[in-house]
Amino acid sequence: MCAAKNSAAKAHEHHHDDAAHGTLRGYLIGFFLAVNLTIVPFWLVMARPLDGVFDSHIPVAIILVVFAILQIIVHMVYFLHMHPRSEGGWTLMALFFTLILVIIVMSGSMWVMYHLHSNMMPSHDMSKMDATGESWIPSQQPFPAVGAVSGTVPVVE
């Protein structure tokens, strides 16, 4: 293994400590872990062993997410050979920056869109509005008259 590392270093000619190629043992451990972390989620959904245990699907969904995160970490460590010092830490910095952006994009759009969705729900009931013949603007609340100071309620005769 040491000889292999040396020949790799020679082939690269330069200080490529980033180009860690891993070992057979590392790849096999990673593969073994990845296979198990794949089989269990598929088994949980296809054989449904936990359907009698929990009332809702949420606990199983959480287990699925945990397995996915674990498997992503396994892939990063054993297949991508990531370590904190490669390229002077810049790859890890880029990864953290990306993760922050991903979290903002994912959680932000889900948060905003689900709130929007729940706020939009009552307006789906259009039949009521047709029945009363009223527009969605409350007729008791007129627009401010021209020249009215903003913030004051205009008096309407």
């Binding site: 790799a8 057979l24 790849y27 096999l28 593969f31 892939h75």
Partner: peptide
């Protein structure tokens, strides 16, 4: 997943030259 591990084997052979 199998293609991932076989690519890993290819890299190991590449290191061995």
């Amino acid at each position: 997943l199998l293609s991932s591990i076989t690519y890993g084997f290819a890299m190991l052979e590449m290191v061995r030259g």
